[in-house]
């Protein structure tokens, strides 16, 4: 079963770095994919990698992380101002961070249909 867990920014903004990392790694180690609103600071990402390494075992092989973030290289001055204002107001709240267990992502990469299969399976179960 493939499970995505959404974590809103409000759930992590008040947490300390250790708490954030514990929360994110806890979900991923449970074989779930985290979809987090916003993004970590780069220094926090480095700490997440460090903590991931400290948790690696024969069962937990690590993480895959991807940050989806609105592009800064805007062309017009208007767009630049708009994105600058958004950055100022929203800060790290902008974008999405996806973190998944490395073994699960590897399986999905090998067989991209797996997501569709699992989603379909979930839908069928719901209908019952």
């Amino acid at each position: 079963m493939l499970t995505l867990q959404f974590i809103p920014y409000s759930d992590i903004e008040s947490l300390t770095l250790d708490q954030k990392i514990k929360k994110l790694l806890g979900v991923v180690k449970n074989e779930k994919i985290v979809v987090m609103e916003g993004r970590l600071k780069k220094t926090e990402e480095a700490e997440l990698i460090k903590a991931t390494m400290e948790n690696i075992s024969n069962k937990f092989k690590g993480i895959e992380i991807s940050v989806v973030y609105p592009e800064n290289k805007t062309e017009t001055l208007g767009k630049k101002l708009k994105s600058g204002l958004a950055e100022l107001l929203l800060g790290e709240r902008q974008g999405l961070t996806v973190i998944g267990p490395a073994t699960l992502i590897k399986e999905i990469k090998k067989n991209p249909d797996k997501i569709q299969l699992l989603t379909a399976e979930k839908k069928r179960k719901r209908k019952k």
Binding site: I49, T52, M53, I56, N58, K61, G62, I63, E64, I65, A102, T103
Partner: peptide
């Protein structure tokens, strides 16, 4: 090398 995953 910095990596996010290491699989023996």
């Amino acid at each position: 090398g910095i990596a996010t995953k290491i699989d023996y």
